[in-house]
Design a protein around this nucleic acid. Structure first.
Length: 271
DNA sequence: AAAAGCCCCTGGATGC
DNA sequence: TGCATCCAGGGGCTTT
């Protein structure tokens, strides 16, 4: 579910409220993707400092170490003063002096991992190969083009891989490629400098807009306040198989690339 | 090195 | 409130 916009919207919805809180108890439910990596009780008494984001990971800095949170496909966080009894899909609770941060994740592809520092091997295994942040200043079109030229895979799959640029998942990859007028099957290495620059711009544009709209709520995404997102209403191609292109009226096509669905307009998007 | 497949897991939608 | 099948916003790991 959660791509960069959903993760960022989630972060914004609780970061200020949890900053400075002291951890009072930790509850773990069913196993998530990876073990926590620390005895839960060892976190009690530590203080939450800031909540950052790297790609689709949330980094919760503590006064000693940090927690890496990933929402996987179906995860969402809530942060409330008084948490109700945990439901069957509530698999992690961080009860603090300011409220309880709770991870709900039916499919359990998500994770909460403790690391002593961002540089240690535990954290680097997850963060080490991540590409550039698309909403940060160091995402520049020429560098982007130079990276793409070395990849022969279809551009959609290069975007999803996350080692060139992070945060672009299945929805926003299709949307950005539509905005850029690029066919998702085009080999990344065949993109000209101007087309790469156009894609670079489209990625920034679509992600920023999605953050503004609170992310996309397709089935059940909500931020830590429980609020839905509305970007899906603005989707140009994602989930619109067979429907008319909003620009030219041509039916949108759905294909599969690397076991993921891809949507594009055969008229507006050139190989 | 890069690319392609596989798989983790649950639940909703659809078809029979 | 039957059963089988397919699909879903991710990504690490293994194999080519």
């Amino acid at each position: 579910m959660p791509e960069l916009p959903e993760v960022e919207v989630t972060r914004l919805s609780f970061a200020d409220r949890i900053a400075g809180a002291q951890i009072q108890s930790v509850r773990v439910g069913k196993p998530l993707r990876w073990p926590l990596g620390i005895e839960p009780n060892a976190l009690v008494g530590r203080q939450v400092q800031v909540v950052r984001r790297r790609g689709k990971y949330l980094l919760v800095d503590l006064d000693q170490g940090l927690l890496l949170l990933h929402l996987g496909m179906s995860g969402s966080l809530s942060f409330v003063q008084q948490a109700p009894e945990p439901g069957k899909h509530d698999h992690f609770d961080l009860q603090t002096s300011r409220g309880t941060l709770r991870l709900n994740d039916p499919r359990r592809f998500g994770a909460v991992v403790f690391a002593d520092s961002e540089d240690d091997s535990q954290a680097q295994k997850l963060l080490g190969k991540l590409g550039v942040e698309p909403l940060a200043g160091d995402f520049d079109p020429l560098r982007f083009h130079r990276a793409l030229v070395q990849r022969r895979a279809p551009i959609k799959q290069v975007l999803l891989a996350g080692d060139v640029v992070v945060g672009v998942g299945n929805i926003y990859a299709s949307e950005a490629l539509f905005l850029a007028g690029i066919r998702p099957t085009t080999r990344a290495s065949r993109l000209s400098k101007p087309r790469a620059a156009r894609l670079h711009q489209a990625i920034g544009q679509v992600l920023a807009r999605a953050v503004e709209k609170g992310g996309s709520t397709l089935r059940d995404f909500s931020n830590a306040h429980g609020e839905s997102g509305y970007f899906q209403l603005e989707a140009m191609v994602y989930g619109r198989d067979g429907q008319a292109c909003k620009v030219c009226g041509t039916p949108i096509k759905a294909i599969r690339q690397g076991q993921r669905s891809t949507f594009f307009c055969p008229q507006c998007q050139k190989p």
